[in-house]
Design a protein around this nucleic acid. Structure first.
Lengths: 259, 259
DNA sequence: ATTCTTGTTCCATATTACGGAACCTTGTTC
DNA sequence: GAACAAGGTTCCGTAATATGGAACAAGAAT
């Protein structure tokens, strides 16, 4: 099937080839590799140069990508940072607790799972990477909400509502907002079977270098396994969140929880 | 001045606009922002989607960039990582030792200088960023070679030879390969006036998160200044290499030098 | 049910990208 | 120094494509 903009396809095939070339690429080499006339290759390369996405080495004549491509993906780089910074902590927590550990970000007023490590004792859960969950009745969601402005919180709740998932679900906006003050105070949020019957969860925030909450980290499991050690798990997830925050360049001196 | 491929310019203006939009962008919003007809915007967005560089949120209809853009810039990300991870160590070493400190990568079987910090006592040297040097008679070159397979080493030596630079240059391939085993054993490589008369050098490897050698780090200076403290400099450069490796996610438990 | 808004499709045509050929530059060989 | 080779660059007639106005489709709001 033809692409709707053929020259765009050609241009990206070219950019990909240049991006993979170790020391840049030549006009002739690219023409051969892509089965295109040299004049076509030259014109596309010149266009990339003019737009600032490529440069030509004066001596060798080779073309290579410039750092301008990075400006397109700054949001991805931020997410990559968070995942990379968090991964070893997720693995350590899962290993230590035996329960499933999640990494979650706020997106369009919902909680989106971006990473997950299962512990030995994990039972099947609904969570999977890419999955979206409500914020009002999940520990990660409440964590992500807690550090937003009250205006933001109200907007999100207006948009997504506070649907009852279990008898424990908080369905009153004002009650939830008051509860979120406790979440900030404790430095962790709990889900006492608010989202799913029989499942409990504890989550902590991950701050980035600007002091904003970049993600939330959680430990989840069946209530009968979680309840006896909930305080200890809260300590662990809070510490892990702080360690990841430090790796992201967060200065811990503000927002230190009252202990 | 007209760009040689007008639709490429339009396409990148579009991609930049989408990249900057916090929660993706709409067809109508982009058409307004870029003063383009909706059908033009829609066609370009569809082309990006087909190429895999954008996706459309099913519910909201908003377009956003995908992670595929990252595959274009993997080389930048890798080089950025190494340089950024190393820079503070280079500065610290130069400050502490007074000698010039280099960061070097292997490229097409040659040593390429990608960063350099001069100490107080530096005399003029041939090294400059972008400069290529032989691998058989430089400390950084021997470091970069030492962790390659013997097949790779032989291929590189066959391609580049073992030209004599000074009376101390190792010019026999078998002797060099045996010497490289010592380099691995010691965790550092020395250049005892093998590349340039009157100049000595000590270098250590920098490992990345996969365990591969991403770069080498070196301290160089006039032999009469280097010789009296060579063992101490070796310790320092080995430690700096290890610190940078850790920053790149290298697990130190393997390849730990015998001490 | 109607209206509004936004996304999507169609297609005649204006515009642009194409690519072959020629030219230019630099390096190599004799 | 001349000739040759290789690769980069430019030109321009034209084929191919991208354009964009109009219409349509779908969903939301009233």
């Amino acid at each position: 099937m033809e692409t709707p903009v053929k020259s765009l396809e050609r241009a990206f095939r070219l950019a990909e080839a240049v991006g993979q070339a170790k020391d840049g690429a030549t006009v002739t080499g690219l023409a051969e590799a892509l089965a295109l006339p040299k004049s076509t290759v030259h014109r596309l390369l010149s266009a990339f140069v003019q737009l600032g996405y490529m440069e030509q080495d004066e001596q060798s004549g080779r073309y290579r990508l410039t750092a301008k491509w990075l400006s397109l993906v700054t949001r991805f780089l931020a997410d990559l940072d968070v995942r990379q910074a968090a991964r070893r902590s997720l693995e350590a927590l899962a290993e230590e607790t035996g329960e499933v550990v999640h990494l979650v970000v706020l997106n369009d007023g919902e909680a989106v799972y971006i990473d997950k490590v299962e512990g030995k004792e994990t039972i099947r859960m609904h969570s999977r990477i890419g999955h979206r969950a409500p914020v009002h009745c999940t520990a990660v969601g409440k964590t992500l909400l807690a550090y937003r402005s009250e205006d933001d919180i109200r907007t999100i709740l207006r948009k997504h509502g506070l649907a009852r998932h279990t008898p424990n679900t908080i369905t009153d906006a004002q009650a939830l907002i008051a509860h979120l003050a406790e979440v900030r105070q404790n430095g962790v949020a709990f889900d006492h079977e608010e989202n799913e019957p029989g499942i409990s969860c504890v989550a902590a925030p991950i701050f980035d270098h600007t002091g904003a909450v970049a993600a939330a980290l959680s430990i989840s499991g069946p209530t009968e396994r979680m309840r006896p050690r909930l305080a200890a798990l809260a300590d662990r997830v809070r510490e892990a969140g702080a360690a990841i925050s430090a790796r992201l360049g967060h200065d811990r001196s503000d927002r230190e929880t009252v202990r």
